[in-house]
Design a protein around this nucleic acid. Sequence first.
DNA 1: CGGAATGTTGATATGCCTCAACTAAAGTGG
DNA 2: CCACTTTAGTTGAGGCATATCAACATTCCG
Lengths: 243, 243
Amino acid sequence: MTSPNEVLASKLKEHSRLGAEDLAEISRFSHQRRQLAAGEDLIRQGDRPDVAALVMSGMVARYHLLKNGGRQYLSFHIRGDLPDAQSLFLERMDHAVCAIGEAEMVLIPHAQIRKTFERRPMVGFAVWRETLIDAAIFREAITNNSGRSMRARMAHLFCEIFYRARNNGLIDGNTCDFPLSQTQIGETLGMAIATVNRTLQALRRARLIEFKGGRLTVKDWPRLAANGDFDPHYLHLKRAVRI
Amino acid sequence: MTSPNEVLASKLKEHSRLGAEDLAEISRFSHQRRQLAAGEDLIRQGDRPDVAALVMSGMVARYHLLKNGGRQYLSFHIRGDLPDAQSLFLERMDHAVCAIGEAEMVLIPHAQIRKTFERRPMVGFAVWRETLIDAAIFREAITNNSGRSMRARMAHLFCEIFYRARNNGLIDGNTCDFPLSQTQIGETLGMAIATVNRTLQALRRARLIEFKGGRLTVKDWPRLAANGDFDPHYLHLKRAVRI
DNA sequence: CGGAATGTTGATATGCCTCAACTAAAGTGG
DNA sequence: CCACTTTAGTTGAGGCATATCAACATTCCG
């Protein structure tokens, strides 16, 4: 039941030193709640938003809409993330944002945020850092989807999701939410559904993970990380998480 | 023979409105020149730079170093680009930057740049925009390397390079510099060298491009763009270029 | 001029996609 | 609550695109 501003502030404080004045500015943001149904779009490609969204609960994804009607999922976002921060400075959305499962969002007017950046540059730098970490995640996805085997891709994706959830205190034992369908996993990793299914089974059989009902359970972190060539440095988290 | 500060200012002015004060601040940046030999690293994964680099001439690339010693190239940068702007706010480099062919760089101390951002937020917003456009390019690379056929990937890469060169006034008729080896194209698009070679020949035979001696010639832009599913919106360039 | 790097070609193997049929689960209306 | 519909997941067979390997040609560079 933390307030939106606290969620945002605590996310930014993970990597940025914010003073009392900075936090005070953040606490003055107004916000409008928005509940998203499973699969619902928050923003579409081509939109020109005048608010920025903060994830309060659930998961949202960014995706490219392809010419043939398919999707390429680009990244996934959880509580505390700002999945469309780029809209603060790039007018036109080059991708869409949708809910994966149900999600609760909070919308903050761009104008307020930009004003804050002018008055308290440190707040701007902190949000900038967030967008730079997003970029690092995109880069990692390039590497993941280009060179690696299907099994490694999938292992890497699971590692990233679990590691980030863990870092945000959103796990429950060895289990976190990841309410993707197998089709969506395919649209993330660039693999056919049949292959997704078989690769999942292989990972299950190897006792690395469980994945059912939109929940991911990591059963053998060291081997999963090895399988996915996962090195969390790219997430730029200050406090490295021990799993 | 334009000065570094003019190169930077004119790049930022492409998308951001900068006032006289902003430009004056930029013009006060000190810089140190650095000449890179072909293939030389400017920054390595794990480094913690205290300067930011501006490309003055030539081309540099960002890449991930893989466990097996291979590389995954992530993006290419030309005159006016800031290929390591992220180092302003993320301490540790999660990827490396190297020269593709020879390149001339200019190094500007982080401290100066950050000071400028505090005094003139608009300058910060402009550089932020640059990093956001980088992120959009990464996203597009995810889509390119995940779903599309090898031929489409290659066509798309050529489109992007040519379009950006054209936008920066760095083309010569229908030809621009792109001094990659076929091996490096493979390490960009996630394809084996043999396939790179054969795909290149296919594009040549179809009279879409010429690619020789580190120069790329576009012989049929509309068909090349169609082959690569290329839609330049993601580059977020204000003035759309007609080719 | 010689050696190294880069590019080219062919043969073979295989991982993955495609298609198609089927099963299981989840959601819907009577 | 059950029958029905829809969606998601599972499995197998077959073909193809692309990786891999190996030999050779060409260009680059000292």
